[in-house]
Design a protein around this nucleic acid. Sequence first.
DNA 1: AATTCATGAAACC
DNA 2: TGGTTTCCCTGAAT
Length: 552
Amino acid sequence: MAPQTRGTSFPKIVIERDYDTEESSEEEEEHEEDDEALNDSEEASDEERLEEKDEASTSTKKRREPITISLKRVCKVCKKPGHEAGFRGATYIDCPMKPCFLCKMPGHTTMNCPHRVATEFGVSPAPFKSSHSSLEYVFERQIKCRLPAMKPAYVIPNKVNCAVIRYHSRRVTCLEFHPTKNNILISGDKKGQLGVWDYGKVHERIVYGNIHGCILNNMKFNPSNDGTIYGASSDGTVSSTDLETGISLSLVNLNPNGWQGPRNWRMLYGLDMNSDRGVLLAADNFGLLYMMDVRSNDVTGKPILIHKKGSKVTGLHCHPLQPDLLMSCGNDHFARIWDMRRLEPGSSIYNLPHKRVVNSAYFSPQSGSKILTTSQDNRIRVWDSIFGDLDSPSREIVHSHDFNRHLTPFRAEWDPKDVSESLVVVGRYISENFNGIALHPIDFIDVTTGQLVAEVMDPNITTISPVNKLHPRDDVLACGSSRSIFIWKPEENSELKRERDETKIILCGKSEKSGKGKLDDDSGDDDTYGSKSSKTKKPCIKSKVHGGKRKC
DNA sequence: AATTCATGAAACC
DNA sequence: TGGTTTCCCTGAAT
């Protein structure tokens, strides 16, 4: 089955950019070939040799050899001549000397990687092994029977419905849908700012700037009061913010004495709420877990080492049904399952090894019986039953979501609506040439088969979309790409519906260079465009930024 | 159009 | 083990 949206022509109705982006980019690169001649002709004229004398005589190091710089055309990846890596038009040519950028195996490039198949990424199935445990028996009898055997047809939100371009002043790091109000999306960014956007009323949005000093890594709604949201930040604090007022209080501050050097600065990443116990859990970059009582808004007990000492705990997730189960994942290449009743260093129930850093680890959203992890080894792993064999993942799905220090780490996210607990959304790192444009799609993967169900892209979104969240009730996808946020909905096919099929785009400030005191100065630059050809600009509410900035 | 910078993990010594 | 170097499909500004 071909994935949705693949190969189809782009819809006529597209996002209109601001009027000052005039380049029509119509000229297509026709010279796809014929570059080899350059390599063969030993361009001696281009070849220069520069000698750099060792001027660092003040340094106590021994004299360095003169550096010879060759200006001959070489591959930027392996520095060898004869080939060049990089974009040729909208197609990326890999360096053949490096392992495959997708599956990390040597001997081929992404171009002919067996995992880069049009409709299906690679899957390594693991044989079913029965553990014959009583827990597995319970699972088979009581839980698995509740999971429908037939999977309903997936409804894929494949068209941008509305967007705020340059909404945040830095890249988006996390997204949360409001648990009860359907059109409210909360977003966090690298600067620690928190956005509240009513994408139903497209113009109603606000950005609170005084909550955190740097990266807002994870957010979690307070289940007993959905007017407030918790946030864990690299500034070392956990915040509780009132969404109406933007007034925030700190539940914990791990850096009460300010900046004492990088070895002492504590950053909070993982965050989740255990409502049964009334505790908020957060974890830091030194491997420690902190617990906060949500009634007293105070830390309870001492921090517990749950990952390798000094390593970052990237994520926390409480089991949706079993309040005693907690999952954590981190830079020590493990996802770990814990019993909340016995939380002490080394007492994890299971340790799920990965080849690289684990960006995220989630129980499945409804039964909690499956586990989904995203690792920096470019693989999504699935364990089909937490009661079955956890020694090895049930499936490993090769998928391009490489680590890049300038991107928010990718996290494969369950579709919370999918009763079969098999649909997952994840952004893709490597681009593909879609009608002459290099685009980075957002992938929908059926993790029971590893099949790519849909790849979703828009010719106006040329940036990578590492942050994706599916709505808990509606067929809506929210995606954070660079500083912008996009709302996707299923495309309505009929011509009648097309009449009201309008993409609403809000363009915020062009740049933030002049904003010393304030952030996005979007005066006069903030407009909505109907995606039809009408150029009538509508008035709108400006993005609000509250408070100042803190150093991180 | 080419260059610069932001700055995290792994490889390297 | 620890400090240093590297860097690779980025994105935005200059």
